[in-house]
Each structure stands twice: as C-alpha cells, then as structure tokens.
C-alpha cells in the first residue's frame, strides 16, 4: 500500500521510496529508508499528513506520501511505544 492511504494513529514500515531523486535523497537524509518505521500522527482526508519518524515530526504532502510504499506494522503494543517515543 502507499503511505497516502495510511490511517491515523497506526504504525507502518517503509518498503520503498519512489519520489523524484532529489526528494528521495532528502527523505533518506531525514532518516526515511527501506525498513524505517513511521507513525502517522495526523492526517487530512485528502492531502497532507504528519508522521513521526526517528523522534521527529514531519509534514508530508500528498505527492510525497503517494510515492512511498509502506506496509502496516500489526503489533499494536509496539505502535503505542513508537508514538510516545
């Protein structure tokens, strides 16, 4: 699934970045790589979302979130701790 379809308050794992090379590099420098876990803090119905990754919050536009492949992390307990961290 793509990150754009992600649901608020759940945790996901990045499977691949498919944005333009320039933006991909930025995302990678911010710590978004294959296998990185991210937590969706907030999102609008259509549009931007706020994620938490490696202890920082990032706002991502639709274009970026539509080009990040993710899979949901099912372990809810872990998701809780991620959120707090």
């Amino acid at each position: 699934m793509i990150l754009y379809d992600a649901v608020k308050d759940r945790e996901y794992k990045i499977e691949g970045l498919y944005v333009e090379p320039g933006i991909t590099r930025r995302l990678q420098a911010l710590g978004l790589n294959d296998g990185t876990k991210i937590y969706v803090l907030n999102r609008k119905k259509r549009g931007a979302m706020i994620i938490k990754v490696r202890g920082t919050r990032l706002a991502l536009g639709k274009h970026i979130s539509s080009n990040i492949e993710v899979s949901e992390v099912v372990n809810t307990e872990e998701a809780e701790t991620r959120k707090d961290g």
Binding site: L27, R57, A59, G61, H63, I64
Partner: peptide
C-alpha cells in the same frame, strides 16, 4: 504541478 510539501514540525 506536483505538491511536495516536506517540512519538519518542531
């Protein structure tokens, strides 16, 4: 145009 918002929220 592509909307590519990317900003850190401190």
């Amino acid at each position: 145009s592509t909307n590519s918002l990317l900003i850190e929220l401190p």
